[in-house]
């Protein structure tokens, strides 16, 4: 009894929806293989120059002036990537531990100011990035802290703890409290119950939260822009700097690599999740 026109309209609409979402990504991927250095919107021919150039593997064929500038920035880019990965690793670890601990405490223990904590943890997520960035900058300057990788990690932890908290909290809400009671009933202390029952039950949520924290930390620009010093630049801040000096074809290559990395991480996450659920 399906209306064929309605069906067609729905199909068309969903197709449009996916085009709308993914077209910009495909455009970037396509451009990254276009050899036209002047106008990337006009297809010349297929090339891997932008990729190899990125890693400083080959000499650049184009204008020698820009080639000098570029070799320098390859090292910078690798350094920025390293900074990003280091920051993301520390931030993910700290935010995951804090966020998980807070979610467990709020869900399983009664104490004063419980509601207050709950609301308070939402705040950094809803706060505009620019406000958070400026706030953190003023805070660090007031304390007399040098802007460095440490300040970036602290800054990222302030809001990523909230993200992990929200995700773990959602998971914990779906766990029957009787599981922990059963564990205690069978002779397990609170600590053993935490280790053998609650944490394994929460594992998919904790993993999801950690993955999200990692991705957001890698990706954050606005907040990091304020609290990164001249020495330690993260990848997004570095790319932003590059773009300000003009959109170069190499940007497309970097973006394509980042897309690839994201897809790999997301796929790994999904795979881990599907393994956990039975």
């Amino acid at each position: 009894m399906r209306n064929p026109w309605g069906w067609a309209a729905l199909t068309g609409f969903s197709l449009l929806f996916f085009v709308f979402i993914y077209a910009p990504l495909f455009v970037i991927v396509g451009y990254s293989f276009n050899s036209n250095p002047v106008n990337m919107m006009i297809w010349e021919r297929f090339t891997l120059d932008w990729y190899t150039g990125l890693f400083g593997l080959t000499e650049r064929v184009m204008d020698p002036n820009s080639r000098a500038a570029y070799i320098e920035s390859t090292d910078q880019m690798i350094a920025a990537l390293k900074t990003s990965l280091t920051v993301a690793a520390f931030t993910t670890t700290i935010a995951t531990v804090l966020g998980t601990a807070t979610a467990i405490a709020l869900a399983r223990y009664r104490f004063r100011l419980r509601g207050f904590y709950n609301g308070f943890l939402m705040l950094p997520m809803m706060m505009p990035d620019i406000v958070l960035g400026i706030g953190l900058l003023i805070f660090f300057v007031t304390l007399g802290m040098q802007l460095s990788m440490l300040t970036i990690v602290i800054g990222h932890c302030t809001f990523l703890t909230s993200y992990v908290f929200i995700i773990v909290q959602a998971r914990i809400a779906g766990i029957d409290p009787a599981l922990e009671e059963a564990s205690a009933d069978l002779g397990a202390s609170e600590w053993v119950t935490l280790r053998k029952v609650l944490l394994p039950q929460l594992a998919p949520g904790i993993l999801g939260g950690a993955l999200l924290a990692f991705v957001i930390s890698m990706d954050d620009l606005v907040i990091t822009y304020f609290i990164s010093g001249t020495g330690d630049t993260t990848l997004p801040v570095f790319i932003f700097g590059m773009i300000r000096r003009g959109v170069k074809p190499e940007i497309n290559a970097i973006a394509t690599l980042i897309i690839l990395a994201s897809v790999v991480i997301a796929a790994a996450g999904l795979w881990l999740r599907s393994r956990k659920t039975d």
């Binding site: 009787a178 059963a182 564990s183 053993v192 594992a203």
Partner: peptide, 26 residues
């Protein structure tokens, strides 16, 4: 020991590990 209304079995463990839990923690 208690048999819970919802059974409260540990979904991330095998049946054998569920049953042996009291012995495991002891």
């Amino acid at each position: 020991n208690t048999v819970f209304q919802s059974y409260a079995l540990f979904g991330h463990m095998t049946v054998a590990r569920n049953v042996g839990y009291a012995l495991e923690v002891a």
